[in-house]
């Protein structure tokens, strides 16, 4: 992202992933709102984080309204519950018309449906899996010779 483009980003879920993205985006000058239902989750934000914290359940329409989702450029749903992420992503896209919406999903079984609903998904399972597979198939591994026990 170039430094002259400032986005308004809403991040749902302030866990390891959510707080990581929030800290980075805030550091590079974007306006950020982080939503989490547990206040203690905000402890994961760095001391330089200059965005907003909103305590609440993002599947509540009112909470998204409070976060000014109607003005957001980007919404990223990162909670540990796939269904929450999928619901929040749909509400942001269809009801608040957020231009760019992304959801983290662990379980890929429902991918067909997500695709049908037009939700952009990121799967940590798939990404990590591919990295592991890639490193096995591309770099040579010294094969262990059998050593008698």
């Amino acid at each position: 992202m170039s430094s002259d483009l400032r986005y308004f980003v809403i991040i749902v879920g302030c866990g390891r992933l959510g707080s990581y993205i929030a800290n980075k985006l805030s550091h590079s000058g974007h306006s950020v709102v982080v939503i989490d239902s547990r206040e203690s989750a905000f402890n994961a934000l760095s001391s330089e984080y200059s965005g907003f914290r909103l305590e609440g359940d993002a599947t509540e329409f009112d909470v998204l309204k409070q976060a000014k989702t109607d003005q957001a450029d980007v919404l990223i749903a990162t909670t540990h519950e796939d269904n929450v992420n999928v619901m929040v992503a749909q509400v942001a896209k269809k009801l608040f018309h957020v231009p760019r919406v992304m959801a983290r999903v662990f379980d890929l079984k429902r991918e067909k449906v997500y695709h049908h609903l037009g939700i952009e998904t990121v799967s940590p399972t798939l990404i990590a899996g591919d990295v592991f597979l890639e490193s096995i198939t591309t770099s040579p591994i010294a094969k262990r010779e059998g050593i008698g026990l």
């Binding site: 519950e81 796939d82 269904n83 999928v86 619901m87 929040v88 429902r110 067909k112 449906v113 609903l117």
Partner: peptide
């Protein structure tokens, strides 16, 4: 008791 689960259940039921 979870709205998000009920939403996804019905969407799966309908679309898939």
């Amino acid at each position: 008791p979870n709205d998000e689960d009920n939403l996804v259940i019905c969407q799966l039921a309908d679309l898939q």
